[in-house]
Design a protein around this nucleic acid. Structure first.
Lengths: 181, 181
DNA sequence: TTATTTTTGTAATGTTTGATACAAAAATAG
DNA sequence: CTATTTTTGTATCAAACATTACAAAAATAA
């Protein structure tokens, strides 16, 4: 149920997704939706965001068990480029939420910001470790490089909609990943 | 009137800005708003976007009359970092619109995309000229560097909300502008 | 089985939405 | 100054909105 809702929220954002949209998409009536998610629409959206948090946890474990975490991160970014056109247009639900919810709903905005900050921490930790091992020669502080990846992520999130094109996106991503060496 | 409306749209986006919000902000009653802007709320939003187009035209002229256009572009990006906190949270109305309007209103989305593509063209033209003059040594194609600046712009647009902090933003922007040399 | 609780779908809640109708007022024209 | 047009604000519209009330149905417990 959350999954179907997430898909809709992801596409259309919070405000433009109506409860009847959600009802149609999930197949559940309004009554069920409100019985299952006590907080209504907002709670359902939170759950949709939360799920991204779980994906992040998975990625964290993969990173920690990898001998080449930087390659993992790079591969992840490049995999974005080769996604479907619809994926490009949907972008990242977390980044989208930050843009939509500023001045609208502080709680949802902060929820989304927190997820990207956790992602940044993941990147920074991995980069710092690889710098110490000498696998990354760059003297740029790990926290700056971590933020750079977040900036790239957010930038690509919008660029994907302007140019939902594998080649263009791949080119831009690779250009910006060169700094990680 | 458009200016006050633009300010609201810029902050809250299209969907979250109601007509009564606009009426209050502009001081004009609903009747006046609909008499002045035949297309209603959507037309008013278009006018708000259009104004960014005019700013772009101004910047184009400045670029064409400058001996150091690249410095102008760099200064523009860095000036973003030192803006007010509210400016950071508002971000760029054009980039915001692209994120909000995908799957919602194709016309408004395309209007916004077109503006960023024109901006890109401006950058690319300036970069190409400076490459020919030898002022930029990089062999990376001008159109790739132009898109890189758009990616940076969109990335910073979201990063500003996560970190509305001059130092952090300046650091990120300068890091990414290094490629223009 | 029967009794009790939980879940479901429908209908209705009151509110807010974008948009209009229209008369008063202001501006313009003659 | 009068006649005509344009602009304004108010009151109102139907539609859409998020939410809830509630009875039927399903699931669970005894």
């Amino acid at each position: 149920m959350v999954l179907k809702a997430q898909e809709l929220f992801w596409e259309k954002g919070y405000n433009a997704t109506s409860l009847s949209d959600l009802s149609t998409a999930t197949g559940a009536g309004a009554g069920s939706l409100y019985n299952t998610f006590k907080g209504g629409k907002k709670e359902l959206f939170k759950k949709s965001l939360q799920q991204r948090k779980e994906d992040l946890e998975d990625f964290k474990i993969k990173l920690e068990n990898s001998d080449t975490p930087i390659e993992l991160i790079k591969a992840f970014f490049i995999s974005v480029a080769t996604a479907s056109k619809k994926s490009h247009l949907k972008g990242c639900i977390v980044a989208n939420t930050i843009v939509e919810m500023t001045f609208i709903d502080e709680e949802l905005e902060n929820e989304a910001i927190e997820i990207l900050k956790e992602t940044e921490k993941l990147y920074t930790t991995a980069i710092l470790a690889e710098q110490k091992k000498g696998n990354i020669k760059s003297k740029i502080p790990a926290h700056t490089l971590g933020k750079h990846l977040i900036t790239l992520w957010c930038g690509i999130n919008t660029l994907r909609r302007i140019y939902p094109d594998k080649e263009i996106l791949k080119q831009q991503i690779e250009l910006q990943l060169q700094i990680l060496k």
